[in-house]
Every structure is written in structure tokens, then in C-alpha cells.
Design a protein around this nucleic acid. Structure first.
Lengths: 149, 149
DNA sequence: ACAAAACTAGTGTATATACATATATTGTCA
DNA sequence: TGACAATATATGTATATACACTAGTTTTGT
């Protein structure tokens, strides 16, 4: 849907203003699509993101700092997400022997299995961009990269 | 920065996966830029959004439902945002005489003045897309609209 | 006319996030 | 070595959001 119709605004002052608002609106739309997708697995998209990072390190553990560095939404609550995942037995947390300030975080077998389940259905999630052809997806990817420069 | 460097991931399985992750990452980036911008005005970007909608209706009041319908992030807490704005005296809330279920929400003079202040500096916010030229901004706007179809 | 359905706003609970701060541990350097 | 800075993680507080639910009001259908 055209942005103007979606938020019932007649016009924007500039292409820049429209772009900022379009990005905010689209990200809200995407976020709700994602949360709907992940709901059946009883995790949030943020928790999935942490699991994905941990699988990237597997079988090595990752520190909280490393996770935070690689998270999509940088933040200060990797600790709390890890605590939630631990309660669900999807990760394990243990004291790092080399540096007792750090914590070794490791995805469990249960966590890896869940990731596989999600992978099987990930085409469903990625399908939200079926409205674009491959060339358009590439251009969109490039423009987003360039925007953040 | 290229997405792969930003989140230290070597490759993506598909253009689709990269796009979904790129959108999530970019929206997190934008959201933190916005919150930094709005901080000096002591409001959040969501509260600004509500004020902007109310100005669009001014001098007519808006119902909570109308505000919710036009919000960028659709949600169930327009009530709570309105309560926060009322505490800051940026809006007024009164019972709607025509339909006693509804509430008339109206931006105050103080709220309108704040919006003017923000408008003066909005080029600073919109400046985050200076890395793109006008044609690229237009294409990005079009692709985002198309994506949500 | 009146009971049932639909609507409007608000609230309770859980999660996520920003920011500041606390606590424990390690590194540095005079 | 001993004081102090730097680092890693956790926590407190405030805000935002999703979802389910409540209470009051209006509309609908017979």
C-alpha cells in the first residue's frame, strides 16, 4: 500500500521526510510480521537473533559482549535476553575460566534443534519480500547499505 | 557500512534473507538516530508521531481510535502515549459529547509550539538520508511501498 | 423495546529497549 | 606493589509494545 494511504496523510514536505517516515512505517510492518512468524516457536525475533549468533560460534561459546556486538539492534540488554533463553533451556551459561568477568554462553542441542525447525520454515518469513523481483531486492539491499553510510 | 561488516556475518543464504536482516538492522539504526534527535525535546519519536497526527486534525479534536489508525507503529497503547503527553501538557483530553465512549484529544498551544520548534530542526533529522541523492531516495521510497504490498 | 453484538477506551501482564549505575575482575603504570 | 583506570556483566528505572481482557456505551436485529 502506498504510504500516503496507509497513514492517511495527503502529502509530505520533501522526499527526505517521506523516506524517514516510510522507513519507520515499513520497519513497524516488518517487525509485526516477524513477531507473528516467531510466535509459534515461543520466542521473540530478538531471542532468535541471539540464538543465530550462538550457532555461528558453535561449538565455541560466545561472551555476552560478542553477542551484543553482533546483535541487529544494539542495546544494553543482551544479559536479559540470555536469561530468558536460559529459562527456556535453549542456551547454557557458565563462568569463563580465562576471564572471570566474562560468561561463556553456548547454544544447547535443544536450541540447535529449534533453529533447524525455524530454518525449515524460513522461506515463509523471507516470502514477505516476494512482491519484489530479484533485481529490485538487490537494489533495495544496496540502497539500505548506502543510506547508513 | 556494508551489512556483512556491521553484524560480522560472512554471507547470507539468499538475497531475501539478506533483505529481511538488512531492514531490521536499518530500522534499529534509524530508530536510535531518531530517539537521539527527539531527546532534546523531552519526547519520544512515538509521542512526536501522535502530536503530528493531532496537528493534522487541528483545530478539530481526534479520537483515540483515529490516532491509533494513523500511527506508524500500529498498536494498542495509544491510550498510554496520550496519557504521557497529557502529563506534559502537550495535549488535552475531554469526553466526547456525541459519543460518550469516545474521547476528544486536542493538541494544546504548548504542543503546537513544540512542533514548530521541532520543524525548525527537522532538516537535521532528514539529513540522515543525505548519503542518497534525490533519485535514489525516490527509488528507495518506491521499493519500500512495493515491498509492503 | 430490548437483548445481543459491536464498538471505544483503558488496564494488567510480559517482553524489549535506552540509559545510568553497580559490582566484580583485570590491566596499567608510577 | 598498590592505586587507579578499564572492562564485563548485571540491575534499576522509565518508556514502548503485543496481547488479552474489562467496563461502559452505542448499534443492531427481531
Amino acid at each position: 500500500m502506498k504510504l500516503e494511504d496507509a497513514i492517511k496523510q495527503i502529502a509530505f514536505k520533501s522526499e527526505e521526510e517521506r523516506l524517514v517516515i516510510n522507513l519507520v512505517y515499513t520497519s513497524g510492518w516488518l517487525s509485526s510480521e516477524q513477531n507473528r512468524f516467531f510466535k509459534r516457536f515461543h520466542i521473540s525475533s530478538q531471542q532468535y537473533n541471539v540464538l543465530r549468533i550462538l550457532r555461528g560460534q558453535y561449538p565455541n561459546p560466545a561472551s555476552v559482549g560478542l553477542i551484543q556486538e553482533r546483535m541487529l539492534d544494539k542495546m544494553s540488554n543482551a544479559s536479559r535476553l540470555i536469561e530468558k533463553l536460559k529459562q527456556k533451556k535453549l542456551i547454557k551459561r557458565s563462568e569463563c575460566s580465562k576471564d572471570r568477568r566474562q560468561v561463556d554462553v553456548l547454544v544447547t542441542q535443544e536450541g540447535l534443534l529449534l533453529l533447524e525447525e525455524i530454518d525449515k520454515l524460513s522461506n515463509e518469513m523471507n516470502g514477505i519480500c516476494d512482491t519484489l523481483n530479484l533485481k529490485e531486492k538487490k537494489i533495495l539491499n544496496e540502497l539500505l547499505d548506502k543510506l547508513r553510510n
